[in-house]
Design a protein around this nucleic acid. Structure first.
Lengths: 262, 262
DNA sequence: AGGCCTAAGTGCGGTATCGTACAAACGGGA
DNA sequence: TCCCGTTTGTACGATACCGCACTTAGGCCT
């Protein structure tokens, strides 16, 4: 299982275009930004920034997934949003605040391209395609956060687990996740035992296959049916706001500018 | 009590500057925008826009408070954020999405100034002070949503009620709220009985005074102490991101441009 | 003054999740 | 191959909140 994943990882070249935002940039902007990008390994658990940290870089995940989460005074935490190859980590840099009260942690190991915040801000305030792109992405991110709030209020751990698995899956190239139940519990802000129980249920139903830190989703449609509406709402909004990234699978050796911005 | 509130309402003139975002505009921008503003009465329960509606206007609340909430398929709802005289309703207009999957409802009656979305977008894409102002406000709003998610996950109804009362209070000129427990329950996404119980507790502790749709906060400091950390986190972030609105009480007959933007 | 509608309080069983404690099982390193 | 740390499974009572049903109490209108 592990080997298979490694083989896939080795096959996939790390190119900035695996990040959908970068891939959507028109040629001109791309030419300006490309030299500023730097490939960055993203090991599991790596903290990109801590609550209140001044951000030096923004990150464009390619094969990694980053969790934005808030850590409370008593140490318990809750995930606010997930960012993968569809997005960017560090929106507060161009939003103007420079910091946020949340933490950004690598939730699934892989790579990302990073860029000094200074340059991103410069490009952003040219008020060109990148600005529109980032603003639309930010709105999608807002939807994700809002829906997380709703989901936390109304839905069961089991439903939320389904949602979370699906959202993570959408940001990866395989149907396997390398995650312990402990970590998932931290993300969802619930007990580890709660995840164990829910995951066991999903496994009995034949939707997933759990094995010491490795989850294989075996029946995605059923998992979607089992999830609450929140997953679909967020997905739909991402597709609406960033339509050019929808069709582009991560496997596709994306052209430099698959589609002009509307 | 009610009479007193009416008297206050009558005394306060409805000027656009009661909205902190408008008040923070430099003279030049203000001159351009002022003619486009239109005073709008905001009766309790009025729906500014429904999930998915194309927004025609943005709203700058002055004496009213607007709730952004998500309504689920089964009809239950949860508040995502509160917008009062510190902000603007309709950020998705300039963020690029034009719509959101949430509903905007008047939670506390009063007034607002509205402006056709078209003009706001034009001004926004001049990339001047208004843009920076709105982006910073949006980041503050994001913080509020994120913290709502955390709060929904970890804190008791009683703590959340405290937070909610404080946030509403911050956006009003008096220490009285006109809200039934039923409405509050809808906002928080909990049972009405849960609010009754919590409110009763707070009343016994002498923090508030409840009377058929009228809540008077009698001990604000104690209410803050009773609330979870979420209130303070969001407040602090608003103050950090929009410092020029902090000192300005709604009572102050704000000058046209109290402070230049940094 | 009386009646009625709305708002608020109360009681009760059901359930999801919590906190805690402990047992089982897997797997990498010595 | 064995061992030990990590990961997962299980069990328990406690508790916060739910859904439902019903009562009490204001305030407004006739």
């Amino acid at each position: 299982m592990q080997e298979w994943l490694c083989r896939v990882m080795a096959i996939i070249p790390d190119t900035p275009q695996q990040n959908h935002l970068l891939a959507a940039l028109p040629a001109e902007e791309w030419k300006r930004l490309q030299p500023l990008l730097e490939l960055q390994p993203m090991p599991l658990g790596h903290v990109l920034y801590e609550s209140g940290d001044a951000m030096r870089h923004v990150y464009f995940p390619t094969t990694s997934i980053v969790s934005l989460l808030y850590v409370m005074e008593d140490g318990s935490s809750a995930e606010i949003a997930i960012v993968g190859n569809e997005g960017i980590v560090g929106i507060s840099l161009f939003m103007g605040g420079e910091t946020t009260p949340s933490r950004a942690v690598v939730q699934s190991a892989g790579s990302a391209y990073r860029m000094p915040g200074k340059y991103l801000k410069e490009e952003f305030f040219r008020a060109g395609p990148l600005q529109r792109l980032l603003l639309r992405y930010t709105q999608a991110l807002i939807t994700q956060m809002a829906q997380t709030a709703v989901c936390n209020r109304h839905h069961s751990v089991e439903q939320q687990l389904c949602r979370w698995l699906l959202m993570s899956l959408d940001r990866l190239v395989s149907n396997e996740l390398a995650m312990t139940q402990e970590l998932i519990a931290n993300m969802l802000g619930v007990r580890r035992e709660g995840v164990t129980e829910s995951a066991g249920k999903l496994q009995k139903l034949g939707l997933i296959n759990y094995n010491r830190g490795h989850i294989v989703v075996t029946d995605r449609p059923a998992l979607e049916a089992h999830s609450c509406e929140c997953y679909a709402v967020v997905k739909k909004e991402f597709d609406r706001l960033l339509p050019w990234i929808t069709a582009t699978s991560s496997f596709t050796p994306a052209g430099l500018n698959p589609q002009a911005m509307t």
